[in-house]
């Protein structure tokens, strides 16, 4: 399963009650209202647990966390694309 799919699955299951709807990989979670900032922190906890990373305070920026693509790119930068436990 690729990163985008793992992230999408978490978002759809946790915030959309399983309804994928029109969620595109580029859609802003915050501006589309899919997730609020508390939800982003829920996502952060998921990433930390699933990928064994620590997300620093200064990494809590939209560029890293505000869409499926941004999260995937952030994860790739953070830990590389190889050996991800997905």
């Amino acid at each position: 399963m690729d990163l985008n799919t793992v992230i999408r699955q978490f978002i759809v299951e946790n915030f959309l009650f399983g309804e994928d709807g029109h969620l595109s990989d580029e859609m802003s979670f915050l501006e589309s209202g899919i997730i609020d900032s508390t939800g982003i922190l829920e996502l952060v906890s998921f990433l930390e647990e699933k990928f064994g990373i620590a997300v620093a305070d200064e990494e809590l920026v939209p560029e890293n966390l505000d869409s499926i693509s941004n999260v995937a790119a952030y994860l790739t930068r953070k830990i590389g694309s190889a050996g991800l436990p997905v």
Binding site: L41, S45, L60
Partner: peptide, 27 residues
């Protein structure tokens, strides 16, 4: 540009402060 997150700041009886980010569920 950043995402809002909450930080808890504690102060012990000696006035020493510690801080940590709060998870969404704890908040």
């Amino acid at each position: 540009d950043r995402i809002n997150y909450h930080t808890i700041i504690t102060e012990d009886k000696g006035g020493v402060r510690r801080q940590e980010r709060i998870s969404g569920s704890d908040w």
